[in-house]
Design a protein around this nucleic acid. Structure first.
Lengths: 232, 232
DNA sequence: CGCTCTATTGATAAACCTCAAATACAGTGG
DNA sequence: CCACTGTATTTGAGGTTTATCAATAGAGCG
C-alpha cells in the first residue's frame, strides 16, 4: 500500500539504513513496532532504561534533560528520518535524556535484540551507526565550545540558524520554523532564560531579522543572522 | 625485551583492544609507529587532516580547540592507555581539535589504512571503537548540560574531580593531580577565566578542601568537593 | 467571555569578566 | 649557590552581562 511505500522511503533515507538494499528495507521496517504519540507525550524518560531505538516517521521530538530545580536543558530536536536512542543498543545503561513529542508524531521502534539481529544480518548498519554517533559527537562538541566562548545573543543566533536549517520551511516572509518553539524552549537550548530570549527576539524584530509570535518564529533575514553569529 | 612487554600490556588495557587475544597484540602493536613528544609539542592540529589514530603510552595530551580571540577551550585530557583521533578512521574530515603533549609523552600511531586492516582482521576492534565514541558522547553531553545549568564554582569542582579521578595519585596530603595544570588550563576546561579559578581555589584552600601551588593542585578533601559539586 | 499559558518589559541584583598591579615561583646560567 | 628572568598567581576595583523578580499584556481555547 501507498503508506507502506512512503514509510520505507523514510527508512531508506535514514542515516542508519543507507547502503542497504531497497528490498530488504521492508523486512527491516516490519521488524519494528510502529507507534503514534500525541503532542507533549513522552517517548522515553531519562530515569527509565531505554530498551528501543527509534526512527521518527512524522512529527518531531524534543530531547532534553531535566535539572533538579525544574530547569530544562534541550539537547536537540529529532526530525522525521532521524533516529534517537540508537546508542542504547550498545549500552545497558539508561539513556540519560527525555524525549517528548512536539506535535502529533509517529515512530518505529526496534528493540535491542532486534537491532542486534539486524546488525548481524546487515553489517553496514553498525558502520552507519558509528557514523551517526560521530556526527552527534561533532555537533555537541561544537555547541559545547560555543557555549563556553560565546555570549548569549550569539548563541541564540546560532541556535536559531541550526533549528532553521533542520526544520525550516520557506514562506513568503522568510523561513518559518515549522513547529511550536517557545521562548522557554530556545532558552533551554541555549542555556539562558526565557526573559533574555524574549528581549533579544524583540530587538531582532525591530531590526527586521526575524518575525515572531506565540511559540512561532520566522527568520526574515538569515544572512544578517549568520553574519552576526560569525562575527559576534 | 621488557620494554615491549610493558607496551603491549598498555595496548591490551586500552579500550580499543579489549577482547583481543594476547598473542595478537604484539602484531597489532608493531603495525603502528612509535613516537616521542616533548612537553608542549603538538601531536596534531585542528586545521590539518588527522591521518592517524593514537594510543598514549606515556605522558598526557591536552585536547583543545583554539578560538579566534586566543581563548583555548579544553575538550579533555588523554591519559596513558587512552586513544585519541580514533574517530578519524571513519571520517575523512579533519578532526577539529588540537592535541598537545603535557610533559614528555609517547604514543603509538596507526594510519587510517592500518586501522581499517586491523578492524577487518579483528572485528571486535570496530565494536570497541563504537563503545569508546559512545562513552565520549556521554561525557561531553554531561559537561554540556553542566555548563548550561551550573555556576562556575560548581563546574570547577566537577572538573577538578573528573581530572582527579583520571589522573590523580594518592599522596600524604590527599590526591595529587599528577601533571602541570595551571589556573588557565582549568579555566579553559570549565569555560571561565584564570582569575575566577584563582579566586575560587584560594577560597577552597582556606576551607582546607585543596592545596595548590604553581601549576599543581592537590585535592585534600575530595568528599567536601563532591558534596559541593552535587548540591551547589 | 473568562481562563490559562506565553510573552513583554522594567527594575534590581548577582555573577562573572576585564584590567591593572603586585607578588610568588621555577628554571637557567653564571 | 645565587641572582635573574619569564611565567604563573593573587588580589582589588570597576564594569558588563545576564539572571531574577514582578507586573502587565496578549493569544488561543473551550
Amino acid at each position: 500500500m501507498n503508506n507502506q511505500i512512503i514509510l520505507t522511503d523514510i527508512v531508506s533515507r535514514s542515516d542508519l539504513f543507507v547502503g542497504i538494499d531497497e528490498d530488504k528495507l521492508c523486512d527491516i521496517f516490519s521488524s519494528g513496532e510502529r507507534r503514534l504519540y500525541k503532542s507533549g507525550a513522552t517517548l522515553f524518560r531519562e530515569w527509565t532504561p531505554a530498551v528501543k531505538s527509534y526512527l521518527v516517521l512524522e512529527g518531531r521530538f524534543k530531547l532534553s534533560k531535566l535539572h533538579e530545580d525544574g530547569k530544562e536543558a534541550i539537547v536537540r530536536y529529532i526530525n522525521p528520518g532521524e533516529m534517537t536512542a540508537a546508542i542504547s543498543v550498545f549500552k545497558k545503561k539508561n539513556y540519560p535524556v527525555t524525549a517528548q513529542a512536539v506535535g502529533i508524531s509517529e515512530v518505529v521502534g526496534w528493540s535491542r535484540e532486534t537491532m542486534l539481529e539486524l546488525m548481524a544480518a546487515y553489517p553496514q548498519i553498525a558502520i552507519n551507526l558509528l557514523g551517526m554517533v560521530v556526527a552527534r559527537l561533532d555537533d555537541i562538541q561544537s555547541r559545547y565550545l560555543e557555549l563556553q566562548t560565546e555570549q548569549v545573543e550569539q548563541r541564540i543566533a546560532r541556535a536559531l540558524l541550526r533549528i532553521m536549517k533542520q526544520s525550516g520551511r520557506k514562506v513568503d516572509e522568510g523561513i518559518l520554523i515549522d513547529f511550536r518553539l517557545s521562548r522557554q524552549d530556545l532558552a533551554g537550548y541555549t542555556g539562558t532564560t526565557l526573559y533574555t530570549v524574549s528581549r533579544i527576539l524583540s530587538n531582532w524584530e525591530k531590526k527586521g531579522w526575524v518575525r515572531s509570535g506565540r511559540e512561532q518564529i520566522t527568520v526574515a533575514d538569515p544572512h544578517a543572522l549568520v553574519t552576526f553569529a560569525e562575527t559576534g
